[in-house]
Write a protein that binds this DNA or RNA. Structure first.
Lengths: 196, 196
DNA sequence: CGGTTTATTGAAGCCTCTCAATATGAGTGG
DNA sequence: CCACTCATATTGAGAGGCTTCAATAAACCG
């Protein structure tokens, strides 16, 4: 409900990679068992306020309310897409482009839950967190950030991010709003109970 | 059924990133609508032989056979985990480590479908493909490959990969067999039909 | 047997990392 | 309100990994 969390993984050599971000309104375990099984822990990046949904309640509610069921699928698809685009960032975007992309993504996601006002929003995370999210060192995050500020596209102070030129940021990020066409998605009717 | 495929994404600057690999036996669209919606194309890396399952048939079969339903969830979870670990590779593993990790993953996955004999298997992809998979340049893939061969851990000729020292490869890859504990997964019973 | 794709090699340069030091800010207790 | 402490941010310098460009060798294909 409040605060930012993430799914992450720490390698034996001590390096951490953040897999995905959970923002206010996000569902950490859309259909229950997903994250439990994978072994990736979920950690808080800020103090958190969370809602706990018993599996049975969620399951029953999803069965009773088709629109909720659809919303769960929608969430699953969107989350998946975000992860995929994160992979593209890590593999094929430069440090600057990754930073820009991250801000674009946050702008998009936080807008969905009405947490953006005039292209300004809170970013209650540390530069080290951003580094682990983007696969960079915190030093380099700092420098990229300064460069981005110097170009006049954004400003970031007191954990407030202000995007001055959204289109310039999107261009830099190689942003492609492929997720925005989710409106009329009707995924396959989910199969029956898994008792086997 | 035969051949390798992948889901990928090409950025405006022409760079390609491969999101995930589909090997023989893999399901490209586990619950139907997932990839269709995200905009990521699926491409063949080799000549392909595929089975096409009509959505209704799959849906009905999953409802009628709980074990199949469970298998679909299992597949979804495993695929998800593989993607996540791929992110960790891109973000926090060096070129050598990524190569090693890729071979470990392939060894694991191809073993599941009985395509590995004595730690030897086919790898019918080009070095450029591997580069796009690991977020590297093909030149660097070539050099990392040579280094890996020179160390005596593997040999790769005629698109045949031979792993001589599996444990050394796993160590190098920072391999962590977290997916191997999938045996007794019973995910949440999938919710009802999505008509909304 | 040519023609095209793929693999290999070399050299130069940049992007990003690591190490290390300093500055700034937030929180705490006096 | 200030001194102290700790986490975070910033800066510098040097090194290294990886990339790009470009050329050559090898393998594949009809």
């Amino acid at each position: 409900l409040d605060g930012w969390a993430c799914r992450y993984r720490v390698l034996e050599n001590g390096k951490r990679q953040i897999i995905s971000l959970f923002l206010p309104g996000d569902i950490c375990e859309p259909f229950g068992a997903l994250p439990r099984v994978t072994g990736y822990p979920i950690g808080a990046l800020t103090p958190l306020r969370v809602a706990w949904l018993p599996l049975e309640d969620l399951s029953r509610a999803a069965r009773d309310y088709p629109s909720l069921n659809k919303a769960l699928w929608w969430d699953l698809l969107l989350t998946e897409t975000l992860v995929h685009e994160g992979m593209v960032s890590l593999g094929r975007r430069s440090a600057m482009e990754r930073m820009a992309y991250l801000f674009c993504e946050l702008h998009f996601r936080l807008s969905l839950v009405d947490l953006v006002r005039d292209d300004v929003f809170d970013m209650p995370v540390t530069q080290a967190d951003i580094a682990d999210l983007l696969g960079l060192s915190s030093v380099h995050v700092n420098r990229s950030l300064q460069e981005l500020r110097g170009s006049g596209i954004i400003s970031l102070r007191w954990q407030h991010l202000e995007i001055h030129r959204v289109s310039a940021l999107c261009d830099l990020a190689l942003w492609d709003p492929i997720y925005l066409d989710f409106g009329d998605v009707v995924p396959m009717a989910a199969p029956g109970a898994a008792t086997g």
